[in-house]
Design a protein around this nucleic acid. Structure first.
Lengths: 148, 148
DNA sequence: ACATCTTTGGTCAGTAAAAGTCAAAGTCAG
DNA sequence: CTGACTTTGACTTTTACTGACCAAAGATGT
C-alpha cells in the first residue's frame, strides 16, 4: 500500500473517531518514516476544500495542522428543504424540488428517479385523494431524512 | 496462441477466481515479455463496457489497473422482483428484498436507504391501515421500475 | 521592548514510478 | 492483395516522494 494512502487512512480514521484531526507534522512524518513534506503532499492532494475538508495550521512552538471535514451543503440544504415542506405536498412542487436537488448535485440521477417515481400520482393512486398530498409530504421528508 | 489471447485468458482467469482483477501494467507486460502498451490494446479490444467490463486505473507510483465484470442481470433481477410482488407488500418483506438487492450490489446504499424510508410504517402512517400494504407495494414496484 | 535563537510548518523543483496515446510496422484470414 | 487485427516503441501525462531552502510563531536572554 502506498505511503500517501496510509497517511490518508490514518487521518481519515482520526476524523472518523474524533470528528476532527489535529496532527504535528514532524511527529507524523517520523511515525511513518517519511519526510515532513510528504504530509503536505497528502493534505493538498486528498484533503482539499473541493473534497470537503478544511486544513488549518500554525507554525512555531506548539504548532499543529488541523483537518476538519465540512459536511456543508448536503445536510444543510436537505434540512432546509425538509423544514420547508409542511404537512402537505403536491406532485408538481415535489418534482421541482427533486430536480433542484439534482441540479445542485446533492442527489444523483438514480436517487432522483427513485423519488420522482415514489411520489408520482400514479404510484399513490391507491391513497384516498384527501390524504394523497399528506402522504406524499411524509414520504418525501422521510426519504430526505434517510440520506442526510 | 496469440499474445492478446493469452493476456485475455490470464485476466479472465483472474476474474473467475477472484471476482475482480487488479494488475500492474509493467509487471504483467514483463511476465508475458511484451511491451506495456500491449496490455492497453487487450483491454480496449476485449474488456470494453459493451463486453460487460469496467476498467479503472491509476497512474503514478503504486499505480494499477483494475478490471471488473459488470453484472448484466440488473434489469433481469429487478423485473423478477417486480413480478414477484403482488398487490400487497408488508414492511418486513420489503426490507428483506431491499437488503437482498443491496447485498447483490444491484442498488447502492443510498438507494436502499431511500427505499426503506419511503416504505416504512412510520412514513405511511397517514395511509389507512387497510390500504397500507397495497400502497407500499405500489411505491416499491414503481421505484424499481424507475431504476431499471 | 527588542533582538536573537529555536521550533514548527510551507513551498517548490526535481526525480522516479506508474499508466496512456498514437501511429507505424507486422501478421493473417479470405 | 487487402483490410482488419496485432504488436511495438517512442513520447506524454499523471501521481508519488524527497530534500533543500523559506517563513512564521513561540521562547529566551538582555
Amino acid at each position: 500500500m502506498r505511503l500517501s494512502d496510509m497517511l490518508t487512512q490514518y487521518i481519515m480514521d482520526m476524523l472518523e473517531s474524533e470528528g476532527n484531526a489535529e496532527i504535528r507534522r514532524n511527529e507524523l512524518a517520523d511515525r511513518f518514516g517519511c519526510v515532513p513534506s510528504q504530509i503536505n503532499y497528502v493534505l493538498t492532494s486528498r484533503f482539499t476544500p473541493e473534497q470537503g475538508y478544511i486544513v488549518e495550521s500554525r507554525r512555531g512552538g506548539g504548532g499543529y495542522i488541523r483537518i476538519t471535514r465540512i459536511r456543508a451543503d448536503k445536510s444543510t440544504t436537505l434540512m432546509h428543504i425538509i423544514n420547508s415542506v409542511g404537512e402537505s405536498l403536491d406532485n408538481i412542487t415535489a418534482q421541482i424540488m427533486i430536480n433542484n436537488l439534482k441540479s445542485a448535485s446533492i442527489i444523483n440521477d438514480e436517487a432522483a428517479r427513485l423519488m420522482l417515481s415514489a411520489l408520482s400520482d400514479r404510484t399513490l393512486s391507491g391513497v384516498a385523494p384527501s390524504m394523497r398530498d399528506r402522504v406524499r409530504a411524509s414520504i418525501f421528508k422521510n426519504m430526505l431524512i434517510a440520506i442526510i
